[in-house]
Amino acid sequence: MKLSASQAVEVLRAAGEPSRLRILALLAREELAVLELCRVLDQSQPRVSRHLKLLAEAGLVERFPDGAWVFYRLTAGGQGGDLIAEVLARTDPADPILVRDAERLSAVWAERAADAGEYFARNAARWDEIRSLYVSDADVEAAILAAAGPGPFKRMVDLGSGTGRMLTLLAPHAQAALGLDLSQQMLNIARNRVTEAGLQRCELRHGDIFGTRLPDESADLVVVHQVLHYLADPAAAVKEAARIVAGGGRLIIADFAPHRLEFLREQHQHRRLGFAEPEMARWLAEAGLSKVRVTALPPARKEGLTVKIWTAERGQERQRSAA
């Protein structure tokens, strides 16, 4: 459906202000929290919130609370979004104001990365102990094994492999397995565990979940275990993970249900406090996966967190059409 003349005017009016156009350009890069936008724009929270309110009313951005934080992202799809995408595409990236915003956003990214790197390095040796405070490992592993199925798998890929927990669990059922992680400390621990488990066809590699550089549809089992809540753009990570799922293969995502334990954000580098089922279902569908199934595992202790396991598959239509 195309925009009416009045709708087009409303969209352009909402975007037709310098700060709001800057906000749209920033959100085109990733979802951002209000306070992060304030830092980049160097504007007060009330002023930025007012701009965001107008953009949301025009249907150009989506607002979603996450614990005590509020995040915004560009609205997916729609003629209004397409119009703004065209405007942004025609905006000179060398504009001094946009360049300055990009530099400030890069500084925010660098600060996040430094904090996360320090945290993971400090806690690598006791990572499983930290996780055990919130979930029952035995229940989660049993549910992941059930979601994966008996195999055998030609190739299993673990994105954000951490200490190698998913590799030691699932790689015995795979002809070949690959674990990617950005933390060298985590990779060192994972290598030791993989060796101790006698897994000879298991490779560990320094790699980024946002850009794995793996071929399209190259793994019949892809796992993202307790990773998304650390990421600035979890939807992009889901898209990249889905890209490497082969026809007839499946993607397994294990993460938390929405919660309000702010100390995980403050003390343990969690960026998102869990994920709602409709949000994850939309990301998986947009990534081309279907047959989504969800398993919920309630906490073993009162102060614990509910773990959800999403399983989605890629159909074999492409394989048949290529045959």
Results as ranks from 00 to 15, higher is better:
Val61Gln: 14
Leu178Pro: 04
Arg29His: 08
Thr212Ser: 14
Ala89Cys: 05
Thr212Val: 07
Ser161Pro: 01
Ala138Met: 05
Gly149His: 06
Gly288Val: 07
Gln319Ala: 13
Arg314Gln: 06
Glu31Ala: 14
Gly16His: 04
Val108Arg: 11
Arg272Phe: 06
Asn188Gln: 12
Arg201Pro: 01
Leu145Pro: 01
Ala312Val: 04
Ala147Val: 03
Leu305Asp: 00
Trp69Gly: 10
His51Arg: 15
Glu111Ile: 09
Val245Glu: 09
Pro298Arg: 15
Gly80Val: 00
Val87His: 02
Pro93Arg: 13
Glu129Leu: 13
Glu303Leu: 15
Ile23Phe: 02
Leu264Trp: 01
Lys239Ser: 09
Thr195Gly: 09
Ala76Ile: 01
Leu170Ile: 12
Gly80Leu: 01
Asp181Tyr: 07
Gly315Pro: 03
Ala300Glu: 12
Asn192Ile: 05
Leu41Ser: 13
Tyr230Pro: 02
Leu261Ile: 13
Glu17Gly: 08
Leu32Ile: 02
Pro18Arg: 14
Arg39Ser: 11
Ala296Leu: 10
Ala142Val: 04
Ala232Leu: 08
Leu26Phe: 01
Leu83Ala: 11
Asp208Met: 12
Lys53Arg: 15
Ala235Lys: 09
Val108Gly: 13
Ala287Trp: 00
Arg314Thr: 10
Glu203Lys: 13
Ala254Tyr: 02
Leu98Arg: 10
Leu54Cys: 07
Arg73Phe: 01
His259Asn: 15
Glu240Thr: 11
Glu203Ile: 07
Lys2Phe: 00
Gly162Met: 09
Gly67Thr: 06
Pro234Trp: 01
Gly249Ile: 10
Ser321Gln: 15
Ala287Gly: 05
Arg320His: 07
Arg104Gln: 06
Arg155Tyr: 00
Ala147His: 00
Arg39Thr: 15
Ala237Asp: 03
Ser44Met: 04
Ile84Trp: 06
Leu145Asp: 06
Arg104Trp: 00
Glu262Phe: 05
Pro278Met: 14
Val292Leu: 11
Asp115Met: 14
Gly149Asp: 03
Pro96Asp: 02
Ala171Val: 06
Arg282Trp: 00
Val245Arg: 11
Leu170Asp: 14
Arg90Leu: 02
Arg293Cys: 01
Val227Thr: 13
Phe71Arg: 15
Leu54Gln: 14
Asp158Ser: 07
Arg314Gly: 05
Leu21Cys: 08
Glu240Tyr: 05
His206Asn: 06
Asp233Val: 10
Leu167Ala: 15
Lys2Glu: 04
Ala312Tyr: 00
